[in-house]
Design a protein around this nucleic acid. Sequence first.
DNA 1: TTCCTAGACTTAACGCTGTTAAGTTTCGGA
DNA 2: TCCGAAACTTAACAGCGTTAAGTCTAGGAA
Lengths: 228, 228
Amino acid sequence: MGLKERRVREKEEVRGKILDAARELFVAEGYEAVTMRKIAQAIEYSPTAIYLHFRDKEAVINALCDTDFLKLATRFRKIAEVADPIERLRAAGLAYADFAMRHPNHYRLMFMTPHPPHSPEESVIEVGNRDQDAYAFVLWTAGEAIEQGLLRPELDDAELVAQIVWSAIHGWVSLRMTKCNEPWVDWRPQKRSIAAVIEVSVRGILRPGTPAVSAVSATTKRQKRAKA
Amino acid sequence: MGLKERRVREKEEVRGKILDAARELFVAEGYEAVTMRKIAQAIEYSPTAIYLHFRDKEAVINALCDTDFLKLATRFRKIAEVADPIERLRAAGLAYADFAMRHPNHYRLMFMTPHPPHSPEESVIEVGNRDQDAYAFVLWTAGEAIEQGLLRPELDDAELVAQIVWSAIHGWVSLRMTKCNEPWVDWRPQKRSIAAVIEVSVRGILRPGTPAVSAVSATTKRQKRAKA
DNA sequence: TTCCTAGACTTAACGCTGTTAAGTTTCGGA
DNA sequence: TCCGAAACTTAACAGCGTTAAGTCTAGGAA
């Protein structure tokens, strides 16, 4: 037959066109700029045609962001190979901030605007899977750091540690985005600034006396000590 | 005459009514819920009447937030009396977070939504005045901490330190607001959580070896050492 | 007292938004 | 040849911020 298949494929194609048009608008001008009518005009369909492929505007944007956000996940997968949890935390923080600054509109939508709890069943991202879910990744790393005795003894709760670190990086990112043009904040260069945020966070959670150098030798030493 | 005065007073009254009606909507349901038509209905005027008192919708909301935000300033004025900069930083962080959680819609508007650079001449708040501008307050405190030699030697830039600390607190606040109902984050109790964020930030910026106890004796010791 | 003008306010409208009900077109299968 | 389903369009609704034009009121001047 191959007939139904063709139908499905064609429908998938239109869906793709919608997403591409929406992405272009979204990346260039943000959520507000994406209107059903503009998308429709871009793909030369009527506005209502979009509703045959997506429940509503939110569904379009969610589909868009979900797929784009998987790009962050692929970066995290590489970082997962870093053995030392502290080093991994640093790398993840840097990657997270970098991604956010490169995709400000995505970031804004995902982490800076309140949602009706984004139904997980229609999302591409597997919650809790540390290869797809950034929070799960940090949680895992925080847990390892605790296990290996690297953190201050009062910080014995991985969830809490993850939330602290996430807060610091997210705060930096979101302030930078929202207040980048305010005359009353004299922003320091991005690279130096985010490095400082990460360094202060790491110092703040590390057990005192632990050398915070980013060297492999230090890492292995720490791991040995943790085993003992 | 007293005639023009009455006219002015009457106009001021209507202005006040508009702001009160807008505040009610804003506090209860957020920015989106405030529509010119709803405000008008609440005060029993036509929607266009509002434009005789405010340039546009944004002006209404800005006037609203400006006055409400001065309440935070009064709390900061009390905290300014704390002598030890580190202790002051802690207190300010706590007050900031508390204010944000109590006035989420104000906070969201002021710090979580991008603005066309909010023209300072039509604002009530004096930028740079640490009694009115929260950022100026933190900047001043960070500067004192550096002067007194309390911070890590590499953190010699008050602006940078202020931005780091602000990031951490703001990050915590804004994540909590945006993602409070997400099933994939197991938020720790608010009090414990914000205390931990502040503590980690302080530890992270403090010169190693400096006791981070919140005791007056420690404070005076530190100040003596700084003079030496 | 009568007329004029300034200011406060309203009515009606414009162009925009997301969304829906109803109608049209197309095309494979019976 | 006709049917039915799917894809798509047209027209419309209710809402939004905002504006142009008109009305109404009341103090000041003649």
